[in-house]
Amino acid sequence: TNNNLQKAIDLASKAAQEDKAQNYEEALRLYQAAVQYFLHVVKYEAQGDKAKHSIRAKCAEYLDRAEKLKEYLKKKEKAPPA
């Protein structure tokens, strides 16, 4: 059943929406959740090597974006309250 894959794709597209809407906390949470599902699919649900390769590449992309959001949020928190 590829509902985990579908779930991962849904989460990733929601994350991108929140990201665009500048809801970075929400986007960060959703990117993490999406990668968790993608990772589960790569590890436990048989996929062709090509599919695994592209899922891992997606994970790397989302993780990179999530890290940037996390950095931004940390810095923003430190910024003196307006």
Partner: peptide, 21 residues
Amino acid sequence: AKKSTISDDEIERQLRALGVD
């Protein structure tokens, strides 16, 4: 050079690093 794809373990590690606040 061929873009080296990230490994499952590396993904797992980064995910954990992210989650840790």
